[in-house]
Design a protein around this nucleic acid. Structure first.
Lengths: 189, 189
DNA sequence: GCCATTTGCCTAAACCCTTTAGGAAGCAGC
DNA sequence: GCTGCTTCCTAAAGGGTTTAGGCAAATGGC
């Protein structure tokens, strides 16, 4: 009986791949066990339960996404930074749909606190330093950007913009232009 | 043996209520059977399968949402229409979280075509008549609005904006102001 | 009011996923 | 080569999905 060499690390990584292949919803402990050609119960030495697996995949995705975003942001400012940051989200979602779904997985407060969520918020604020927004407008703008990025990417993933003109890439570009313009001319009531 | 008086109609309606109570993910044929105090297999006379149930709940939610939006839009234009329309989405999601999740359920192309999805798109376009946008910018704007509304509401539902100042209502108001301003000053490249 | 047909709900059973308990074999350090 | 920890296993219970086949309640024609 040769051992499979499982570890939490390997399982989570394989789970993320599985998510990209079949969708995050379909990631099950059973499917993962099949992938390692191992009995289901064996995974429970490395994973607390199914929820634990999903949480860990979500944390992995958030971390990867934050790393990419940090990379993209380095040395950029203003519209340049805005576009680069937005593209990171969109590209990640297209390359890794399952992981992206995972990143949207509702974490319990404890996991959320330990997640890269804070880095994401910090980076969004960093982008806004290129625009002239004081609080509380800066926070409103952070929320707007988060909404647009997440909303667009998830509608696109759901197929909302395919099979109709103009193509999605064009809308994306023009929406980023529009957001840049909006941030430069943020209305005061 | 008294009959329970099941029907597809009643099951879907009860399924929608169940979704609001426990979340759309937790809506199962079994849970629904328990609610009617009936054996699980009995539901399969009225429902093709679990997917069918979820699809029908999604269609119901989309229909309700479109009805409310149509109501809100009647007699309004410009910013007034924009705000009323946006509030319909947000309020519906807060009143009926499970149904709102359902409305975001990925439908198969056939169901999507038969859904109220088209009405939603039409209404968004109607709002933009109050602004001066020619194609293809109108389509870009439709996509932007859809992204913001969906994105904001779903981040809010995930608890993203709670427990931090300024409160969500204020951001929402200011974001609608910002969108109105953006639509009135849509940048041309 | 009776009977035949339709319909609605049931039992039974197969299959899959989750999770826990307890056991045996691999591997490391001495 | 023994000791003990870890890894993986078998077994079993519990829940959800789905199909097949059966009996009883409702319905409508006479």
């Amino acid at each position: 009986m040769v051992r499979a060499g499982l570890s939490t690390e390997r399982l989570v990584r394989a789970g993320a791949e599985l998510a990209d292949e079949v969708g995050f919803e379909q990631v099950t402990v059973s499917a993962l066990a099949r992938r390692f050609d191992v009995k289901v119960a064996s995974l429970y030495s490395h994973l607390k339960n199914s929820q634990d697996l999903k949480t860990r995949i979500a944390l992995l995705a958030l971390e990867e996404l934050a790393d990419r975003a940090a990379d993209a942001l380095a040395g950029r400012a203003g519209k340049d930074a805005l576009s680069a940051f937005a593209d990171v989200y969109r590209d990640y979602a297209r390359e890794h749909p399952g992981r992206y779904e995972a990143a949207r997985f509702r974490l319990d407060p404890e996991a959320a606190a330990a997640s890269a969520g804070g880095r994401h918020a910090q980076m969004t604020r960093a982008i806004l330093r290129g625009y002239d927004l004081a609080e509380p407008d800066q926070t409103h703008a952070v929320r707007l950007l988060g909404s647009v990025f997440h909303g667009y990417v998830s509608l696109e993933a759901a197929g909302g913009f395919s099979h109709s003109a103009p193509d999605s890439q064009e809308s994306w570009t023009r929406i980023l232009d529009a957001l840049d313009s909006l941030l430069r001319n943020w209305p005061t009531p």
